[in-house]
């Protein structure tokens, strides 16, 4: 699974930062600033690549904002592949994560993770992190049997 992600500060334009009010999620790690997006945040959000640019969208439906979407922040890859989201106008997206957080462990990812963006009944974009069963190494590392689908790599 994935409890959060971090993205280097330099990845986002000033315009995006100001428009989305990202100053509150700015943190420092080793002297370098990064934006952290956590599922436990009061308003969980995720950056996604959409139409060639980064957008910040709501992460999941954990607080029940939508009556129709699943009340979670993740979806199985098999569900996506089997067409479980076909009738919801879902769009696959890349999530530009540099580091992911899983059960307290920050793990470096090279190219980001897979996600899915779906509109809720009010047309608000909602992102879900796409997951698959974790491999042996990832399971030992995080004690989690689910891993986000990483772009171009496996852990």
């Amino acid at each position: 699974m994935c409890d959060g992600i971090a993205v280097a500060k330099s990845e986002f334009s000033i315009e995006l930062v100001e428009r989305c009010g990202l100053a509150s999620v700015l943190h420092d790690r080793g002297g370098e600033a990064e934006y952290r997006f956590l599922y436990r945040d009061r308003r969980p959000r995720l950056p996604v690549w959409r139409d060639g640019r980064i957008e910040i969208v709501r992460w999941g439906n954990g607080r029940g904002e939508s009556r129709f979407l699943p009340r979670t922040g993740w979806t199985w890859l098999t569900t996506v592949e089997e067409g479980g989201w076909r009738n919801a106008n879902a769009v696959p997206v890349d999530i530009p994560a540099a580091v992911i957080l899983d059960k307290g462990v920050w793990i470096r990812v090279r190219q980001g993770i897979r996600g899915l963006v779906v509109p809720d009944e009010r047309g608000v974009a909602v992102a879900y992190v796409v997951c698959e069963p974790a491999g042996h190494y990832y399971r030992v590392m995080t004690r989690n049997d689910r891993t986000p689908v990483l772009i171009g790599e496996k852990i």
Binding site: R29, G30, V99, G104, V105, W106, I107, R108, M141, I155
Partner: peptide, 12 residues
Amino acid sequence: AVARCPDGIYLK
């Protein structure tokens, strides 16, 4: 390690 260094980044 995570308890002692919560901001640590881990690699395979």
